[in-house]
Write a protein that binds this DNA or RNA. Sequence first.
DNA 1: TTGTAAGCGTTATCAG
DNA 2: CTGATAACGCTTACAA
Lengths: 332, 332
Amino acid sequence: MDVTIYEVAQRAGVSIATVSRTLRGTGPVASKTREKVLKAVEELNFTPSRLGVSLAEGRHAANGIVFPNLSGPYYTEVLLGYEEVASELGRSVLILSTTGRTRVRDLVKDLAGRVDGLLIFGHTAPDDVIAELIQVGMPLVFVSREPLAGADTLRAENTASARLLAEHLALHGYERFAFLGAPLVTGDDVDERWQGVRSVLGAAIEAVPTGHYTVDDGHQAALRLLRSGDRPRAIICSDDEVALGALLAAEELGLAVPDDVAVTGWDDIMAARHARPALTTIRQPMRELGARAARALDELITAARSTPNHLTLTTELVIRASCGHHPQEEPR
Amino acid sequence: MDVTIYEVAQRAGVSIATVSRTLRGTGPVASKTREKVLKAVEELNFTPSRLGVSLAEGRHAANGIVFPNLSGPYYTEVLLGYEEVASELGRSVLILSTTGRTRVRDLVKDLAGRVDGLLIFGHTAPDDVIAELIQVGMPLVFVSREPLAGADTLRAENTASARLLAEHLALHGYERFAFLGAPLVTGDDVDERWQGVRSVLGAAIEAVPTGHYTVDDGHQAALRLLRSGDRPRAIICSDDEVALGALLAAEELGLAVPDDVAVTGWDDIMAARHARPALTTIRQPMRELGARAARALDELITAARSTPNHLTLTTELVIRASCGHHPQEEPR
DNA sequence: TTGTAAGCGTTATCAG
DNA sequence: CTGATAACGCTTACAA
């Protein structure tokens, strides 16, 4: 990309203003002139410099997204939904992964300087940068986090479905529960799930931490949990990956799921259906979260909307085999 | 981000050149002046406009990456390795996902206009755009593709390990094989794997297509394959995800792995170790591929190097349970 | 040590 | 309809 609008103008025998007008369709251009210009553009294989355009237009035509990592389908799916819609809207997407990173503050600020708007997962960005960004009016949408003034927040419903799940498990007659993948910060998705199940299970459930929310960490934590003296009758996991890890641990210890210990997940990632036994879980529209975030950002950026939106998408309890036997599945 | 270098200069009572010098550490600045400038910067909370900087510097300080999708760990891992190193080198990364996209040509060109260099997976970008990009001297590194003039290519070794794997399976005494996940384009990783195994197995192996290289598609294809009259004794899969799908299919049909049918994968993703039975596979340094690509691009961009490199990283045959019983594992 | 001014590549206003 | 020309926000010779 080396040829500039000046060369095109010169070759076409017109001014750069005319070239610009022709290419963007803004303002009138005589059809003979237009032809000359297009011909020159063609011959020179001219593409307007993004930098020049952006500087003049005063916008990047790009969105950012900050996530912890990409282990497992959750962030990945949201990311893809986001990128697809952003792309439709003519915006590129810049990514920033924060786990294992030092100076996240600076990275986020730098990213913010390159885009017109940002999707931020949960609490992956330091509060003070967020405050700064809101302060300067940068369009922001948070996914998987409690509402926040000055920015959009978007999440899938957690508490109600957590209750639904807890109640379903209680109906199985289980009495001791564990919540594997204890919340790390208050106000994010996992915390809401925990609050939800605890609100119905009360003292019968205890929170067990896992480190990260990965298959591996779930596996390790479940191993410890299941080996302990009084193991729970049912393990409600923070998400499907942790649950997959729990399934592994149970198998390793020779425990049958759901007969010895029931296990449930969250998200309904593809592997949940394929797991053995298939995971009872809560389906959450990951792709749509990303897509909606991109659209919300677009509204904010184009100033089609100025007041923040706080949206909660509905989820669905998906009952499969891992939570216990159900009459309709096992006719007597 | 609204305050410009002019306001800082004014407030500090100096020229914009001095502000720039102070901030970038280029050229001399009296320490008293420096202090005044830094104070003004602080008070105004000034951050140089990325667009301004890039336009003046003549570089984006950003890299792009184009991949088909993010289903499964392979692209994801490479992406993360890439982003991490790019970030260390002070470059942001812009992504472009191509599956299900129309006008990939335009998307790639647009992306190219926003970055200093591009990592492109296999054959995800149309040949003519690639030719154009090489033509204009855009730094390019291809991952998982056969060498190409005018750009770096980077891949993990395929053919030799494919032979190794095939020979190992032959030692088990198997006679009929299938390669699940037939190559879609010639010259990419999967094609090399196929060529490798076929070179030792000859007519004893047949290629079976899967659509995409996903768990689901592998599952479906394996189901058809295993139901057919003369099912193969061993299934060599194009990658771990397809293999995971094959495992599912075998289980569904009541076939024991490896006793009724052996299955192998490729990549050694995390799930391969956790699968039941654990997958025999070829370990490939995905993260490192991404990291190296970022460094290679940096060399090309900074003109530290001008001749293309074509690098092949070594892989490792990881023998686990899914390919058959081994003496050392099962002492008589 | 500091300031002036010429780029960098567009867009868009305002006269013709 | 078209062309000067002033932004846009910075970097960097070149002078002083």
